[in-house]
Design a protein around this nucleic acid. Structure first.
Lengths: 187, 187
DNA sequence: CATAAAATTGAGTGTATACTAAAAATTGAC
DNA sequence: GTCAATTTTTAGTATACACTCAATTTTATG
């Protein structure tokens, strides 16, 4: 753990580099060597501050998850539209972390054993939060149908996020808006 | 290239193993050593038949793409429902290749440089085929709105495929049916 | 400014990877 | 059955990876 000022600075540089490289090339392609080069340090310095590569990756992932889980205390007042808008809003505001989140939600669950459980849990909570919002807005829709619809909505949102991650000019906001619009007119 | 019978058999064993391992663990985790162990051969034998690992992977990917692009000649008579049903039908019938396809469509475009172009092209063709079917069924909907809707539909289908790939008990067919149903009632 | 703690470096380790080459074994057309 | 072409094996190479450690330098506290 960092105790001196320089150590904290180095920690910051490492996390910044990790975040950028994760967003650029994903969970498979990231290497300690790459992180160190991007941070301008040597491997030994990295391991003075992080016990393993995965620990640095996990720190960034935790950061991405909490960023994209807006205002957890206000859960009882969500609307589906607000949740989707919050997501696309964050993606636009911090595309680097947005890419990390998209990779995480979709690819990392398949390929990163040490993250799979955490990602699965996050997905379930996310579906529940969206479903709660949806039933609150549509009391006449059964909870199970609402769950189906929100699973599809999040599947689509993840799919579109990957599309955007591959092609940064892809206008994810328009697609997300259209999706929410058409959802709100479905009886 | 294989010229003797045993060579062709070995080629078959290699492709079978590659397909299974791709479906099980994805594009990042597959190794020549793993393929050879699963096929019951040595590395030298592999390289007698395939110039590189990527060539074996690409052969399986081509196979997956053509499997999930049903009856290309009948393009002019598609319906969106039939296209989605064909997709989920193939996924159920050959889950191994289905998993390969899902990994490919979503993760490989990000992480496998040698496949990215091919996957991008395939996706664009897929969107176009779906869009053509949709405008044929809904002549009153503009082509651009149809394109948006089909991009979302395919995003969702990809997202749900990944969900199914992570959790094989996930009932992708029900979700896909619901999606098509609700699409057909959208004006 | 002395000193202990922390940070950094540089030069490693071991392991796994894709891929190769030479020799031995097998195949199949004649 | 011969023999050249093909296939298989065995034993490698080179490279990239995560991670380590002893020596050196830097930090900050009294």
């Amino acid at each position: 753990m960092a105790r001196y000022k320089v150590g904290l600075e180095t920690q910051g540089k490492i996390l910044e580099a990790t975040r950028r490289l994760l967003g650029e090339s994903g969970f498979e392609a990231i290497t300690v060597k790459g992180i160190c080069a991007a941070a301008g340090i040597q491997a030994g310095s990295f391991y003075n501050l992080f016990p393993t590569k995965d620990e640095a990756v996990l720190t960034v992932v935790r950061d991405a998850i909490s960023t994209f889980d807006p205002d957890p205390d206000g859960e009882g007042n969500d609307t589906v539209e607000a949740l989707v808008d919050a997501y696309t809003g964050f993606v636009i505001k911090d595309p680097e972390l947005g890419r990390v989140y998209a990779h995480m939600a979709v690819t990392a669950a398949l390929t990163q054993d040490h993250l799979a459980g955490r990602i699965q849990r996050h997905h379930e909570q996310r579906v529940e939060r969206f479903t709660n919002a949806y039933v609150r807005e549509h009391p006449d829709v059964s909870r199970s149908l609402a769950g189906y619809r929100m699973e599809i909505l999040l599947g689509a949102l993840n799919g579109l996020s990957i599309r955007w991650s591959i092609d940064p000019t892809f206008d994810i906001c328009s697609y997300a808006s259209l999706m929410v619009d058409e959802l709100s007119t479905t009886p």
